[in-house]
Nucleic acid binder design. Structure first.
Lengths: 348, 348
DNA sequence: TTGAAAGCGTTACCAA
DNA sequence: TTGGTAACGCTTTCAA
């Protein structure tokens, strides 16, 4: 039906009294073909609106012109933005994006990854939730082109594009200090590279400033994705019980920060006067929260773009020569939640 | 390289001294094969971790086991949720999802759709931004399985899954009336089916209640996606200039509602006391806005699930017999922005 | 119940 | 610069 009606290379060849091979070559823009023939072919291709059969091409070349993406969740705006960056980068090059979601489940990530590989995607982009490097090492060993986004896995040497997490922690903490905070706490995320990176940045600034790095000033959120708000709330309650209280908090991400904000306000404290707050992720609605939230922008779309570009490069180069790691610079967006000096920045 | 190392049907056949055909049949769970042979084949398949080459299968059958999705934007949480619903539905059936984004651009939607079709997706799910039905009719005429989500196109007979927009308008408006609002305004979206549907619901309730349907009480937002907030703000300013002022506003979606909220608060008015507000979409962060926002939940994930299921059905049935239309029921989530009676609902 | 042969649409390898 | 032939891995049809 649909298939039958499609124009094939063969149809064009017969039309033009050429061989299929010649037509194929003309379309590949190769040199070993006369300009005239090429023109005739291209002409006819346009007339008939010929579209190559990708399945056939894949069978012959082993390439699918598609890239696979595995993320923990598409509902999380960060990954939606990453996906957008990837699509916008690879589509103009003729590549398609196959998506899969791991729901933060280690086994599901493996299954979905295997599925994409079974589809012979030319490259894989993964925001992995694995705790250990074994699985990814297996993927690499099979020779599949693979780029990790966002999180790095401990003990894994792999292509990677992510935010500069340590820098994120530094920017946020330094900003709080600049605003006059003297007891800066941190609500950290679970045991993944991004969380430890941000924690590290936080600690290094405290050290530079000669502020104490106190254990009790660091609360850990069990999860940073779905249910983040509740975790942020309880982590904040923990911090609020300290005496003296913290007067500034850098929170791992905006989801947690929203919960923290709720806890602070419910306790009858003011933001930023009593406690200044900085999140991370710079979600779209950050400025319309009960207190507009200062947040570090990770450049999620940029991360997606770079990951897409890196994936394309791997495809072209075939044998992946060297491991690459791109860090996208972070940018603090200051809003009301952290501004304790006189001038309040524009809301818009 | 990668290709060479992959196990083929042929390898299994040789191993077992069978023909390729027999092995193929065993894997298709057909009856014309002895139980013993099947077992031997399945056994070996497991041992070698055989994965069929989808490209080859596609070439032979014309089916790709993949479905294409075109949406205006993945950054819009509604479409992210729809995508999730689709993926969760089709993945367990072995289907993959190829995504594309039209950026609200009519031509880009056409290009991306054509691209997915060139990839021979078995079915297409589109949240179309076309103004006219021609393009989609062309797709249908070519015999491609296609499901429209969210928006319907004027004059098009097509499979469709969406929210019950008229019902959304009714629920929201009725709720405002129940809260004692007597001058209920509406900020409507641009000229697409969802906006007219919600407007219609709004008007029908006013009529039932014997309230006047006044032109000036309906403000139109030029866009409802990116830049929605600014549009919501200016639409609201327009409504605020009315005398007497509206005391309740039903807004097309939450993005616009956020802008409207800003305008109301900036004017020194209180929500909900002076003006009650109801949005639509029930975005995740609705409850953490400066005033927690009442919003109609469209059941986006459910829409995705139904669309996925409908797409699968079309694939199986091949010849699409009858046009189907599924409306997902809407549900109002009441929060502070619209509650004018004494009892304030639980925040959580 | 099994298998041989043909075909799906494209590209790669040699010859001409 | 062209074209014939043989893959690519699977399914389908027809015979045995």
């Amino acid at each position: 039906m649909t298939t039958r009606s499609r124009v094939r290379l063969k149809d064009i060849a017969m039309d033009l009294h050429l061989s299929v091979v010649t037509v194929s070559r003309a379309l590949q823009n190769r040199r070993d073909i006369s300009t005239e023939t090429r023109e005739r072919v291209l002409q006819r291709v346009r007339e008939l609106n010929y579209k190559p059969n990708l399945a056939a091409r894949t069978l012959a070349t082993g390439r699918t012109y598609s890239i696979g993406l595995v993320v923990p969740s598409f509902l999380h705006p960060f990954f939606a933005e990453v996906a957008k960056g990837i699509v916008d980068t690879i589509r103009p090059k003729g590549y398609g994006l196959l998506i899969a979601s791991s729901n933060d489940d280690v086994e599901m990530e493996k299954r979905e990854t295997e599925h994409l590989l079974a589809r012979q995607v030319d490259a894989l982009i993964v925001a992995s939730v694995q705790h250990s490097p074994e699985f990814m090492q297996g993927i690499q060993a099979r020779g599949s082109a693979c780029v990790l986004v966002d999180r790095m896995l401990p003990g894994l040497r792999a292509n990677h594009v992510g935010a500069d997490d340590s820098e994120i922690g530094r920017i946020a903490t330094q900003h709080l200090a600049d605003q006059g905070c003297r007891r800066i706490a941190h609500i950290r995320g679970p045991e993944i590279s991004t969380a430890t990176g941000r924690l590290e940045g936080y600690q290094s600034v405290l050290k530079e400033l000669g502020m104490p790095i106190a254990h009790e000033m660091i609360a850990t959120a069990a999860t940073a994705d779905s249910g983040a708000e509740e975790c942020g709330r309880s982590a904040m309650l923990q911090l609020l019980s300290l005496r003296p209280r913290p007067d500034g908090v850098f929170v791992f991400n905006d989801g947690l920060a929203v919960g923290a904000m709720g806890a602070i306000l419910s306790a009858g404290l003011r933001i930023p006067r009593d406690i200044a707050l900085v999140g991370c992720g710079n979600v779209r609605w950050a400025h319309q929260l009960r207190v507009p939230l200062s947040s570090v922008d990770q450049g999620a779309i940029k991360i997606g773009e770079l990951a897409g570009r890196m994936a394309l490069k791997l495809v072209v180069e075939k044998a992946s020569p060297s491991i690459r790691d791109s860090l996208v610079p972070a940018k603090l967006v200051v809003r009301e939640s952290s501004v304790r000096t006189r001038a309040v920045p524009n809301r818009h």
